[in-house]
């Protein structure tokens, strides 16, 4: 299991196109991947656009990405990197 935290810096947060990009990238890995706010217990499936949208992650939110599986380290790092990049909105 491998976890990383990243803060959303783009204006629209994890909504609309950024949410869609995030889920697409997550689906390209074999590992089971979840995300949650570090202060919350419940994590949601990162490969589910509906679950991601339901969380209402907005700009400034810190997200903890947890991956478990053969490519867990690469998966968590790639997703954190996508968040840091601002989804091309910067």
């Amino acid at each position: 299991m491998f976890s990383m935290q990243a803060q959303l810096i783009n204006a629209s947060g994890l909504h609309a196109r950024p949410a869609s990009d995030f889920v697409k990238l997550a689906k390209s890995f074999a590992s089971r991947i979840t995300v949650r706010r570090p202060e919350q217990a419940d994590a949601v499936n990162a490969k589910s656009i509906v679950m991601i949208l339901s969380q209402g992650f907005c700009k400034g939110t810190t997200i903890e990405i947890t991956a478990e599986g053969p490519d867990e380290e690469a998966a968590a790092m790639a997703l954190a990197e996508l968040i840091h990049s601002g989804f091309g909105e910067m």
Binding site: N45, I49, M51
Partner: peptide
């Protein structure tokens, strides 16, 4: 296009 994405939602599929 957005509906197609929802159709492929992993959590709902599970």
């Amino acid at each position: 296009a957005a509906q197609l994405e929802i159709l492929q939602d992993e959590e709902m599929d599970i």
